[in-house]
């Protein structure tokens, strides 16, 4: 019997190339509670996206297992898990509405129902009125909202987000982050959120997992007991930011030095 909603048990991921093997993740253990906003933070290249892809079932761990509500994950399970990628990855040949409907369309849901659901989530992310626009006519922030609506439209219990606001400017990412809190509260989903932004982590999360430099390991898990709505400038948020930074800065430096050694 598993008491944890999402359970990551002794997960490692090794990429074998020509004559060498890169250990991306090493012996990762943690769990996520139902309805939790769980954030994974770490220096670039520490394997946090790899970890998310494993949870999404898009890739398989080299060892260990990931258990979702008592069932081991071994492939995408679109009726329970939806993914938002860093790149909005909208289909340029489809309108916003038809992009948001996509997941329901390939699942064979009737045109009427998927339209209703898509319109509902387009409204939830604040894009009402843009249903018939093509992605090329939307701004970066709007595209990312659309890709969130597309994931929400699947109505899964779990939402995985891989640096969804990473490519946006600071103001847009802050606003979208606050909106995400609202959407999370309204839909009561379990969210696993990957980011490299300290502020985003402190502002959004119930708990924050800090990853070490490559090979990625769990360095620490921090509880964030700040009532919502949170103020980005409050002392509480700042002190969480400071404590994450304290733990992460050596790791970030290690990654930077490692990359400097590769470059020449």
């Amino acid at each position: 019997m598993y008491s944890h909603f999402i359970d990551i048990q002794n997960v490692s991921k090794i990429y074998v190339g020509k004559g060498n093997a890169v250990v991306a993740l090493e012996d990762i253990n943690f769990w996520v509670n139902k309805g939790e906003f769980f954030t994974i933070i770490g220096p670039s290249g520490c394997g946090k996206s790899t970890l998310l892809n494993l949870i999404a079932g898009l890739d398989r761990p080299s060892s260990g297992k990931i258990v979702l509500d008592g069932i081991e994950i071994n492939g995408p399970c679109p009726d329970r898990v939806a993914v938002v990628f860093q790149d909005p990855a909208l289909y340029n040949w489809r309108t916003l509405l038809s992009n948001v409907e996509f997941g329901l369309e390939i699942r064979g849901i009737s045109k009427r129902e998927r339209r209703e659901r898509a319109i509902k989530y387009i409204r939830l992310v604040g894009l009402s009125g843009f249903e018939d626009k093509y992605p090329t006519q939307l701004s970066g922030g709007m595209k990312q909202r659309a890709s969130i609506a597309r994931a929400l439209c699947l109505e899964t219990e779990i939402l995985l987000m891989d640096e969804p606001f990473g490519a946006l400017d600071e103001q847009t990412r802050l606003l979208l982050g606050l909106e995400l809190t609202r959407i999370w509260q309204e839909t009561k989903k379990t969210i696993i959120f990957v980011t490299h932004s300290l502020l985003e982590a402190a502002l959004l999360s119930d708990r924050i997992l800090i990853m070490s430099a490559r090979p990625g390991r769990v360095k620490n898990i921090v509880d964030v007991d700040i009532p919502r709505p949170r103020d980005p400038n409050s002392h509480a948020v700042n002190s969480i930011k400071a404590s994450i930074w304290e733990e992460i800065k050596d790791e970030a430096r290690k990654m930077m030095e490692a990359s400097l050694q590769i470059v020449p």
Binding site: A56, G57, L58, P76, C77, P78, D79, V81, A82, V83, F85, D87, A89, Y91, N92, W93, F102, G103, E105, I106, R107, R150, L154
Partner: peptide, 27 residues
């Protein structure tokens, strides 16, 4: 064809055939 476009469809449970005619062909 951008691999992430394909990943999106896969993450939503699209089969290889669906990925081919709903993503690869139009892209």
């Amino acid at each position: 064809v951008d691999k992430v476009l394909i990943r999106v469809a896969q993450s939503m449970g699209a089969s290889k055939l669906t990925v081919f005619y709903k993503v690869i062909i139009p892209a």
